[in-house]
Design a protein around this nucleic acid. Structure first.
Length: 354
DNA sequence: GACCCGTGGCT
DNA sequence: TAGCCAAGGGT
């Protein structure tokens, strides 16, 4: 008779687990919550510097709730999935206004906060409050799919249901914080997607996939799908003082709520750009300089970004409204900018002139 | 249930 | 290298 999964995981965790991640210090519900949101679909090494900077600027739920949204998005810039940042602040305001600044401790109330679903709520209950809750993230899915040889892609409802049931069964009553961290660490450090280190795994003695020599088959892979190609002009417009024109994107859709370079219809030819630029943005500008374009890959499509640079030949009279504003480059870089736009503004685009 | 939402690391 | 995937959630 072998030890339970939980006891083996805990023993392994004591020796080999990660005990010093930034959100393990000064542990409270706010820090755990922010870390869990940042860690959605995002790897630990990517999150760490963002988490530290975010905590420096927004040390508690009140500072986050009262901050300008551009400041919040600015600290999220480059992290992706920007709805997370907008939802984070909405939830912070809810916690301040409706919960007197204290996070609810039950899973159901946590899930009522926007941006917190089943997985994240369970993680907060376990990590912040040390109360029993079952988590099922990408790491746990992989560990359990292999241990129980659960076939099929975890995106399928039936497969996901089985995994949740297994996860529930293994969740212990004691040491919940350590257990949830342990099973995630095992997935991240030992039971990795490719080349799992089964020789050093505390679960290999009765792992079904390992017994069959089929760890590679689990979890099942997602069905493939063709990504459509899209394309767009991105306009780099610079006035005589070296300021750049940016526009705020609509709240939903790609890069929602972020500042970006103005876009023009991809159907326009290069010879039509100047006129389109003048009529769309309401100004007089020089001939465009085309900069080498590049392809940016999203989850669901590829976007060919074709930058064109214009100089302003006449003093600008573009409305300084909420949607479009001139920024010095250092100002612009403190805003919420999509990663490719940040790159375009940072790297001297002259170097890439066609 | 299907689709949308980003970016960087890994192979 | 192009595709896969990562501490998911909202619509």
């Amino acid at each position: 008779m072998t030890d339970s999964v939980a006891s083996r995981l805990l023993a392994w965790y004591d020796q080999h687990g990660r005990h010093d991640l930034p959100w393990h210090f000064n542990r409270n519900a706010y820090r755990v919550w922010v870390s869990e949101i940042m860690l959605q679909q995002t790897q630990v090494t990517t999150v760490i510097p963002y988490f530290n900077a975010f905590m420096e600027r927004f040390p508690d739920v009140h500072s986050l709730a009262s901050a300008p949204v551009d400041d919040v998005l600015g600290h999220w810039s480059g992290l992706g999935y920007y709805a997370r940042a907008r939802n984070l602040q909405k939830a912070a305001i809810t916690v301040v206004d409706d919960f007197e600044g204290e996070f609810p401790q039950c899973q159901e109330q946590l899930e009522s906060l926007t941006g917190i679903g089943r997985s994240t709520a369970a993680a907060i209950v376990a990590q912040a409050f040390g109360k029993r809750a079952t988590i099922l993230d990408g790491n746990v899915k992989r560990v359990l799919a292999r241990y129980h040889a659960v076939s099929g892609w975890p995106g399928q409802t039936a497969v996901l249901k089985k995994l949740w049931e297994h996860a529930e069964t293994h969740t212990p009553e004691e040491r919940i914080r350590d257990y949830t961290q342990a099973i995630m660490d095992l997935g991240a450090m030992v039971c990795t997607r490719s080349r799992p280190d089964c020789e050093h795994c505390p679960l290999s003695s009765d792992c079904q996939a390992y017994a069959r020599g089929e760890t590679k088959l689990y979890p099942g892979s997602k069905p493939r799908k063709e990504k459509p190609e899209k394309s767009t002009w991105m306009i780099i417009l610079e006035d005589s003082e070296g300021r750049v024109l940016l526009e705020r994107r609509p709240p939903s859709g790609i890069w929602g709520g972020l500042w970006s370079l103005p876009e023009l219809d991809s159907a326009l030819g290069a010879d039509e750009l100047q006129e389109a630029c003048e009529s769309t943005l309401g100004l007089t500008c020089s001939e465009p300089e085309l900069i080498s374009g590049f392809r940016h890959t999203f989850s669901h499509y590829h976007l060919h970004i074709q930058p064109a640079r214009f100089g302003i030949t006449q003093t600008t009279v573009v409305a300084d409204d909420d949607q479009r504003q001139w920024f010095h480059r250092d100002e612009a870089l403190s805003l919420g900018l999509p990663a490719p736009i940040r790159t375009l503004l940072t790297e001297p685009e002259q170097a890439a002139l066609l």
